[in-house]
Amino acid sequence: MNNGIISRLSLRRYHVQIWLFVVPFLLGAMVLTILPALATVAVAFTNYNAVAAPTWAGMDNFMRLLSSVYVRISLRNTIYFLALAVPLRLLGALLLALLLQSERRGFGLHRAAVYLPTVIPEVAYALIWLWILNPVYGPLNMLLAGLGVQGPAWLTEPGTARFSIVLLSLFTIGEGFVILLTGLRTIPRSYYEAARVDGATAWQSFWRITLPLILPWLLLLTFRDMVISLQNTFTPSFVLTYGGPYYATTFVPLLLYELAFDFFDFGMAAALLLFTYLVIGLIIMGILNLVGSERGADDF
């Protein structure tokens, strides 16, 4: 009995200690992530220059957003980027995962090679592309010339500059690739064997087994990529073109940076952020709705 009391006491002590283990993380996350994020939401409705106390502005910032030509350009660029980069990155990651999931000899190396560009530091990666895309010194136009194609000027023309930012995002798909490899491995081999016994072709088993079972992973990746790859336009557009030429590569994160840290218009910057992620949230809900109505919501 005595023993029981002691162990109950020690158990309680253990539980207190366990809570203390979580405290540093919760405190850090609270101070450095949750509070800043909440404050950003609140400040979107105020005038705030980061020095004087914020004053209530209601919807003013949002009205200014809608009438600002720079905001309109940056939103258009961002939507262009999302509409092109997210599906292409997803498709690329899926194709690579399907092709390279094999356990044959040498495929470990192929998988490593595909992942490698993803770990290159962003600035170095941007500088490498600055060189690759250079019309005179860069290897890309030399390769194109070898094929008899006159390469464009890339970063000095608005259209090709905007596309360049998409292009360089297509080779950093390692994370999606690994996540989909993991997803593919969760599909039991026996499904494919049963399908083969029933005489299904590889194409059929892809559409009937692989795709439906990997769909939740694909959706998750799509949503993640919409947030992350948008964020990842910052460094390339900062280093390669600084938003130019003619604002062609001014995406929301860069404009946000300019508004907040060059003009100290925190209110407007916060409103832009809120508006952008509201739009992204709506797109995500739209996709969920579309998929949900087609397959029945019970899959989620």
Binding site: V31, P36, A37, T40, A50, V252, Y257
Partner: peptide, 30 residues
Amino acid sequence: AAVWLFRFQILRWMGLLDSLWALILPAFTG
């Protein structure tokens, strides 16, 4: 990007802006 603005402010209030701690501090969020 949602934490850019106010991490800046919090770092300023803590007096850690423009020091290497500003770069290290996110470690406290894991």
